[in-house]
């Protein structure tokens, strides 16, 4: 038998999962198991509204996590998201209090995040500084701006905001909020962008090997700046959704949210080193966090800190899983 030098891999059996899908699949199985536990334990858990509520309660988190997915796929990190969410809500609340036209407020609030993200992206790219430290600076800056605007919470009474907050979109016997639709739209756009646009594919290439991406002639700098801008935009949208949800702007809201977001993205199967992951995984990651919270609420006797403990354990497990998949590949 002559062996050809360029051995061709045998055709994969249809039921074998490609290795790159393993983490997402693991998250999906985990989600099903946790949901199954909930349904088995609590009768009310099987109500479809429970799932809708998870989306309602975590819509803003989902949007921010989608932006973070872009950043992490390039191998970067964005620590500023929680502060930008808070700042967007604060700016909206204070401008509305001053009686500005709500449409104009929306435009201004949605511009703050991307502008800051763009600025951080430029610093990261042109000065070749670690994203960790640049976005840490952004985080402090945005949080500081919040308290500068007001050291106390500002309630929102504007008609547009309150109607957006209270509008229930009926789906049969159940309902979702406007925020859920917006979040799902963001997810759809992001998933399309990552899979079907050059920008999206460049994001993966840079996360895989920035040096190669440069030599293949891809616009590395532009793409890096773009992902931080996208993350900023997602944070701004998240901030608006949060202000719909709480109908206020508070200087100390969403503290530590960036860490929840990173956890959701990683549990959703995106490699922290970049180059591998899906928006769909991030949706699953957010849902996992939501189901944990719901389970703990249903139990009633557990302190909410259990959410953090479980998330911590899961994060460990998923980082180990990623490592194992990576080792097997070699």
């Amino acid at each position: 038998m002559t062996t050809t030098p360029l051995a061709v891999r045998a055709d994969r059996a249809w039921w074998r999962v490609p290795q790159r899908h393993v983490p997402v699949l693991a998250t999906f199985v985990l989600l099903l198991v946790m949901y199954g536990v909930g349904v088995a334990q609590y009768r009310a858990f099987s109500n479809i509204q429970v799932i809708f509520n998870i989306f309602i309660d975590n819509g803003f988190l989902l949007v921010v996590a989608v932006g973070m997915t872009f950043v992490i796929l390039t191998g970067g990190i964005d620590l500023s998201v929680g502060s930008v969410v808070a700042m967007t809500a604060m700016v909206s609340a204070s401008l509305l209090r001053d009686g500005m036209n709500p449409a104009l407020v929306l435009v201004i609030a949605l511009l703050i995040g991307p502008v800051l993200g763009f600025a951080m992206g430029c610093v990261i790219h042109y000065f070749d500084i670690q994203p960790f430290i640049v976005t840490l600076a952004g985080m402090f800056f945005a949080r500081g701006m919040c308290t500068w605007i007001s050291s106390t919470s500002i309630p929102i009474t504007d008609g547009f905001w309150t109607s957006a907050a209270q509008e229930r979109i009926r789906l049969g016997e159940n309902f979702v909020s406007v925020s859920v639709l917006i979040a799902l739209a963001v997810v759809a756009v992001a998933a399309f962008a990552l899979a079907y646009t050059r920008l999206g594919r460049n994001v993966y290439a840079i996360g895989g090997n920035p040096q190669s991406a440069l030599l293949m002639g891809l616009p590395v700098g532009r793409t890096k700046i773009a992902v931080y801008t996208i993350s900023g935009l997602c944070s701004a949208i998240g901030g608006i959704l949060l202000s719909f949800y709480t109908l206020s702007g508070a200087p100390l809201i969403a503290i530590g949210m960036e860490l929840d977001v990173i956890a959701a993205v990683v549990i959703g199967g995106t490699l922290l080193t970049g180059g591998s992951g899906y928006v769909f995984g991030t949706v699953l990651g957010v849902l996992v966090l939501g189901v944990i919270q719901t389970l703990i609420t249903f139990d009633g006797s557990l302190s909410s800190w259990w959410t953090k403990i479980v998330i911590g354990a899961l994060l460990f497990a998923f980082i180990l899983l990623q490592r194992l998949v990576g080792i097997r590949k070699k």
Partner: peptide
Amino acid sequence: TVYQEVNLCTNLSVAENIFIGREPRRGGAI
């Protein structure tokens, strides 16, 4: 140019490595 060390992205598919940066598109989508 093809360099001494292969300068491609191992995390992308073979097809993408050949076409990334100039992917065939239809209506804006790859």
